[in-house]
Structures are given as C-alpha cells and as structure tokens.
C-alpha cells in the first residue's frame, strides 16, 4: 500500500517532468526538468530495490552528462522563435513515431499480462540481499568480456573526441609549463650591487 502510494507519486512527477522537458520554452528549464526526470526514475529503481543502478543513474546522467548539456545550452543563445518555424512540417513524422511507440508499449503490457508470464507485481528481495554485491559478482566474472569491450569502446570515443579538437591552429598562444616550472629567480630578476652615492 505504502509502496504503491510512493510509486504513483514518483511516477506522476516523472511524467510531469518529462512533459516539462518537451513543453518548456527555455532550454535551461528543459535541462532542469530532465534532471528531475532522471531523479524520479532513480527513485522508481530504488523502490524495486536496485540501489546500485539507481545511484549510478544519478551519478552518470545527472552528475556528468546533464552538466555538460547545461553547459552547452547556457553558452548557446537559442532563438526560440526561429527554431519554432517549420515546426508543423514535422507533425506527420512525429505522429508516425508516436504511433509506433504506443503500439510497442501496448504489446509489452499485453505480453506481460498474458498467462505464461508471472505478473505478481513486485516481489521484495530477501533480507540480506544486496543488489550491489549481486551485480559485482556477475559483472566481472560472467560478463567480463562484454564489460571490457564496453570500456574500450568508451575509451575509443574519448580519444576520438580529443583528436577532433587537436587540429593545428596558427597563431595559438600556449603556456609552456616545463619552462615556467624550470624558471629560476636569476632568470627574471637581476640584483645589482651599487656603491652608495653620496650627495655632494
């Protein structure tokens, strides 16, 4: 009962936030709604006792990806009026995609509620069960290759992204850190010994 109330609260806020992402005119507001949406989905995951995934969702999406989103959106001066122009031209395509997604969702719901899949709702995990430990136990044993391939792919993406920015630009001013560190006082400052002058 308590569980259900919490679920519906979080789910309502989640749907509201997702709507907010689409309908808000200000892109920064849209990003903040997306942050809220991620938080609420993390809450829903916590309700089914997968605390590891919930926290990783917040860590990765809210803590890293959306911060960069926010960065970009703040830097860009987006003209809302201009981007709204030609909006209705995409309506047929949008409707088709919406239709497809609705059909897919309905299928899943029907499939779930059919007789051969147990649909007893959420079953609480036994006492002492830890989602974090359970994931760790299989992630580095059974799925170690998939895990490492994913890691290498991500590394590749990072290297590729950095390479894209490494083009030669003429007239670029750079800090030469090694020279700065190696500098001595005698390179910058000359101390001159002078005889004291006497006023005649």
């Amino acid at each position: 009962m308590f569980h259900a109330i919490l679920f519906y609260c979080f789910a309502t806020i989640l749907i509201g936030a997702a709507m907010g992402v689409i309908f808000s005119r200000n892109p920064v507001h849209a990003v903040m709604f997306l942050v809220l949406a991620f938080f609420e989905s993390a809450m829903l995951w916590l309700l089914i006792e997968v605390e590891f995934l919930a926290i990783v969702l917040v860590l990765v999406y809210v803590g890293a990806v959306l911060v960069l989103f926010l960065f970009v959106v703040m830097m860009l001066d987006i003209n809302v009026e201009r981007s709204k122009r030609g909006y209705t031209g995409y309506l047929p395509l949008g409707l088709v995609i919406t239709g497809l997604m609705v059909i897919e969702l309905m299928q899943i719901i029907w499939w779930r509620s059919s007789a051969d899949v147990a649909s007893g709702g959420f079953v609480p995990t036994p006492e002492g069960y830890s989602n974090t430990k359970a994931l760790g136990a299989v992630l580095y044993t059974e799925h170690v290759y998939a895990f490492e391939i994913a890691a290498v792919l991500l590394l590749l993406a990072i290297v590729a992204a950095i390479t894209l920015t490494m083009r030669r630009r003429p007239g670029l001013k750079r800090q030469k850190i090694a020279e700065q560190v190696a500098v001595k006082a005698s390179d910058r400052l000359r101390i001159i010994k002078m005889d004291a002058e006497r006023q005649e």
Partner: peptide, 11 residues
C-alpha cells in the same frame, strides 16, 4: 547502512 554508500557520496 547501504552497500553502495561510496557511490552515493560520489553521486
């Protein structure tokens, strides 16, 4: 007392 405490701190 959660098992993902360190991740929670980082998040």
């Amino acid at each position: 007392n959660i098992d993902a405490g360190l991740l929670y701190v980082l998040a």
